[in-house]
Design a protein around this nucleic acid. Structure first.
Lengths: 336, 336
DNA sequence: CTGAAAGCGCTAACAT
DNA sequence: ATGTTAGCGCTTTCAG
């Protein structure tokens, strides 16, 4: 491995001078600078971030928390996989590398952050139980952002779920539906997607004087298809008195579709279905699923931008909301 | 930040002694060891990997090359997203962290590896053009493995594509098909999935005396749906004289399905379709797609295991093949 | 069993 | 404009 000392002895200058030439810092004559650069080049010098980090306390490393144990879909997740892809690319443009944070060996995220001297942390898709460990980071003044969960003191960049829920109800009502069920994911304070989507949904119904019948709400304990299937079964066996159902995400909606197919419930003739996420599957299933697309790129861009600001000491707003977009396909019927 | 020196002064021992106690190395009396550990605990000591790496030259960091510009699906990739998920988890169990390697700022992978003092590299889903940059790593004796592309000198853990192609032909022939088309992805020496699947496919046909009519082969320049759509259109407009088509992956198969739907070609009544990858979509599209599932977990497990061996100096075989499994669904018709 | 000395590669602060 | 000195936090080697 060739170090700045090797360059120093070869050029006759000293290590700090070489360092300055390489980094473009300090004042050096053009002659020495170019000479050092040239020799560095031909010796195949590569800087060591490790050594630099040890002295500067800056690693240019971003820790990413991504632990999808909820859906068991790993990186192949319609929403978070997309956010991560874009977030990574933005951070790399800014000169940062991504390292995954984990909690193996009873290690906390904070330990991991310290171990690797990480400059900032992005919680892309944390486990619900991770939230305390993430809050701990904030308390230790590690720059953090979240792209899903609400964590005290940490800026969250997230879809405007309430607005989307509102628009969902509006869309269904405009299509002539009045009795609309809501199949929720787990209601959680920290991961409030399901709850907020429901609140916006109910809000519109209330505003219109239609109201929401509590019997038409069913909560699924997990965000997966089996949970959607079973949740909808409970709902359907309790009451069939509705013409449409808004599923809190597409995966739950696929569970509904499976149930509907088995029971011979026609979608959208008998039952209209509205999803959330624009999973890749949504445009392939039959009928094609009408759904909301979360703006993954914008969420990732904002998360990256804010995290970068936090690292330079600029404070962040507690929450940034990004609108979702309705993707109309074939699963909602229009009544005259 | 609390360092071993802080612990040293507090306990009255010296830094090396503290180091030994913390790491369990060297010989220390039980008394001093437990005292040091206790103080370290109550002071909230966290080791610095950066400092340790500087002296030991071991970072416990694995560089991952993942640059899906071919399918533009990022981490949400049916095959590679799954491999990465599992690979990460295996490496973490072994005490390694994952950092993504990139080539921004004209930086080569080698530069990046040196910059971060990475212990080993896994090319999960490289760009085709990356291969030279990866070969360079091998030449510099950086432990490397690949889970897709063949790179000179680097161990590749990959699906046994030829065997799968062979089984595909066998399956279709056993279902009464004789005129079978092959819709290929890009034929490439370094990323040989398409080619090997075709070779195995043709091999079975030849062995059975059925043979393969060259007119029934069409190559798609990209692994995406639009490319599959167009490739199949070229094929279909040249000849309709076949009852089944084997698509080199599911994404191409979805392009075929779209074309078939637009032209009113019934699948599987008029045209049987066999895919590859078991994309999540495959079980949701209509008809459900019969396809091969690559064994993502096994590939990731072997890749992790071999990379770990390489790091400890144990040489690796040039190639490890993992069988794929046929998933029977509804897209292949049986003829009497 | 424990300590002293040295070094990993780099940069910051100060001196010349 | 360049050099000197020192230190980041840890481990290794060798001495005691």
């Amino acid at each position: 491995m060739v170090t700045i000392y090797d360059i120093a002895t070869k050029t006759g200058f000293t290590a700090p001078t070489v360092s300055k030439a390489l980094n473009g810092t300090g004042k050096l004559s053009e002659a020495t600078r170019s000479k050092i650069l040239e020799v560095a080049g031909q010796m195949g010098y590569k800087p060591s971030m490790v050594a630099r980090t040890l002295t500067t306390k800056k690693s240019n490393l971003i820790g990413v928390i991504y632990d999808d144990t909820k859906m068991n879909t790993g990186f192949d997740h319609p929403m978070f996989g997309g956010v991560l892809t874009r977030f990574r690319s933005q951070m790399e443009k800014a000169g940062y590398d991504i390292v995954f944070l984990s909690r193996t060996f009873q290690m906390s995220y904070l330990n991991h952050v310290r171990l690797r001297s990480v400059d900032g942390v992005a919680a892309i898709n944390p486990d619900t139980e991770d939230n305390k460990c993430i809050a701990e980071l904030e308390q230790e003044h590690i720059p953090c952002i979240s792209t899903n969960d609400y964590i005290p003191g940490i800026c969250t960049v997230v879809t405007d779920n309430e607005q989307a829920g509102y628009k969902a109800a509006e869309y269904l009502v405009n299509h002539g539906h009045r009795r609309i069920a809501f199949l929720a994911g787990p209601f959680s304070e920290t991961s409030p997607a399901a709850k907020e989507r429901f609140q916006g949904f109910k809000k519109y119904l209330d505003e219109q004087g239609i109201g929401f019948d509590g019997h038409l709400l069913e909560e699924c304990p997990l965000w997966n298809m089996a949970s959607g299937y079973q949740g909808f079964m409970r709902l359907w066996e309790r009451t069939e008195d509705f013409t449409a159902v808004f599923a809190a995400n597409d995966t739950l909606a696929f569970g509904i579709m499976q149930f509907a197919e088995e029971r011979g419930i026609q979608i959208p003739q008998r039952l209209s279905l509205l999803g959330f996420d624009d999973d890749r599957v949504a445009s392939f299933c039959r009928p094609r699923l009408t759904t909301f697309r979360q703006d993954r790129d914008t969420i990732a861009d904002l998360a990256a931008e804010i995290l970068l600001s936090l690292i330079t000491g600029i404070p962040a707003p507690p929450i940034v909301r990004v609108p979702a977009r309705l993707i109309e396909r074939e699963s909602v019927r229009r009544y005259p």
